[in-house]
C-alpha cells in the first residue's frame, strides 16, 4: 500500500498497491469538490432552516422532546449522541446556536473559509441530529458524511469567496485562503470517500427493501401514493387502468433495481452513465412520492461525486 504510483508493478501485491494508491491518492482537480460544496451547502442550509419554525417547540425546556425523554427512548446511557444543544435550554440560547449553524452553512455554500465552515456546519448538523435522533430522517446520515468528507477537501479552491479573496489576503494565518489551483490529493481522497460511502449506502437501502413484499410485487409506489398524510402530491389518479397499474409496477422496480445495481455498475466507465442517469431519474421520481425534499436533493448532489473530475477541470479552465 506504500508503493509509489509510478513504480513498476512486479507482483499482484504491487499491482494491488499501485491500484490502491491510484484510487485513493492520485491528485485531482478541485473543481468538482467545489461544485459539490455548493450543493451540499445549499442542502445543509435548507435542512437547518427547516428546524427554524419548530426549534423551541421541539427542543425548548418545556418542548415536545426534552432531553430526559430522548434519553429514555434511546434506552438510557447505552448510546452515544453528544450534542451541545442539550445545554441550550432557553429559547435565546437555542436560537443563537441555530443561527450560528445556519451562518456556517451559508459560509460553506459561498465558499468562505470553506474547510472551517464545512466543519462548523457538520458540527451544527450533528448537534441538532444528536439532540433528537428518534426523529432523524433519511437525510441526516448522508448530509453529515458529505460534510465530514468536504472538511478534508480544498473545497474552496474554486467558485468560492476564498478564491476571490485569495489574491488580497496573505496565505498565513488564513490557511483556508491558501487553496491553490493545482490538482490535490485531498480532493481525490474526499471524492473517493464519498463514492465508496455512497456505494455502500445504496446497497443498504436496496437490501432493506428486499425484506418486504411491496418492492417485489410492484406495489410499493402505490403504498407511498396512498399515504394521505405524508404524500406531497396526490397521484392516486394513476390507479385508473391496467396500463397505469403497470406504470406503478415499473416505477417500483426502477427504484428497487437502481438502488440494488448502483453499487456494482457505477464503477465501470461504460455502465456508469446509464446507472447515474437511472439514479437521477429515481431520486427525482421519489420526491413527489415521499416529500423527502432534502434527502432527494442531497442524493442528486451526491451523484455528482461520480462524475469525471477532469471534465469539470476543463470546464473551469474554459471559463
Amino acid at each position: 500500500m506504500t508503493t509509489s504510483p509510478s513504480a513498476k508493478p512486479t507482483s499482484w501485491t504491487d499491482d494491488f498497491g499501485c491500484a490502491w494508491n491510484d484510487f485513493w491518492f492520485r491528485p485531482c482537480d478541485p473543481t468538482l469538490v467545489s461544485v459539490l460544496r455548493i450543493g451540499v451547502g445549499l442542502v445543509a442550509l435548507l435542512h437547518l432552516a427547516s428546524y427554524s419554525s419548530d426549534l423551541v417547540r421541539l427542543f425548548g425546556a418545556d418542548g415536545l422532546l426534552p432531553p430526559d425523554t430522548v434519553d429514555a427512548l434511546l434506552g438510557g446511557g447505552g448510546t452515544y449522541h453528544p450534542t451541545y444543544l442539550s445545554f441550550a435550554n432557553s429559547p435565546t440560547a437555542l436560537w443563537i446556536c441555530h443561527a450560528c449553524g445556519m451562518v456556517a452553512a451559508l459560509a460553506l455554500t459561498l465558499g468562505f473559509f470553506s474547510r472551517t465552515s464545512a466543519a462548523l456546519t457538520a458540527l451544527a448538523t450533528l448537534a441538532i441530529t444528536n439532540r433528537a435522533p428518534i426523529i432523524s430522517g433519511q437525510v441526516e446520515p448522508v448530509l453529515i458524511f458529505m460534510l465530514l468528507y468536504l472538511c478534508i477537501a480544498p473545497a474552496g479552491a474554486r467558485l468560492s469567496l476564498d478564491a476571490v479573496l485569495r489574491p488580497f489576503v496573505p496565505a498565513q494565518p488564513f490557511a483556508n485562503f491558501a487553496h491553490n489551483n493545482e490538482p490535490s490529493v485531498l480532493s481525490n481522497l474526499s471524492l473517493r470517500l464519498m463514492q465508496v460511502h455512497f456505494a455502500a449506502f445504496y446497497l443498504m437501502t436496496a437490501l432493506a427493501k428486499t425484506y418486504g413484499d411491496a418492492w417485489w410485487d410492484g406495489a410499493a409506489v402505490w403504498h407511498l401514493i396512498a399515504q394521505t398524510q405524508s404524500r406531497p402530491v396526490d397521484l392516486s389518479f394513476l390507479r385508473g387502468n391496467e396500463a397505469l397499474a403497470f406504470l406503478l409496477n415499473a416505477w417500483t422496480h426502477l427504484i428497487a433495481w437502481t438502488q440494488l445495481l448502483f453499487p456494482f455498475l457505477v464503477w465501470n466507465r461504460f455502465t456508469r452513465p446509464v446507472i447515474l442517469a437511472a439514479a437521477a431519474l429515481m431520486w427525482i421520481s421519489l420526491l413527489p412520492l415521499t416529500g423527502l425534499t432534502s434527502f432527494c436533493l442531497l442524493m442528486l448532489v451526491g451523484l455528482g461525486c461520480f462524475l469525471p473530475a477532469e471534465a469539470f477541470a476543463r470546464w473551469h479552465t474554459a471559463r
Partner: peptide, 24 residues
C-alpha cells in the same frame, strides 16, 4: 453514533406495505 454514521432504524425502505407503514 457520535458522528451519526449509523442509520439505526431510519426507514430507508420508505414502505414495505405493512400496516405499520401507514401514516399516523
Amino acid at each position: 453514533q457520535g458522528l451519526a454514521l449509523d442509520p439505526g432504524t431510519i426507514r430507508y425502505y420508505h414502505t414495505l406495505g405493512r400496516e405499520e407503514d401507514d401514516d399516523a
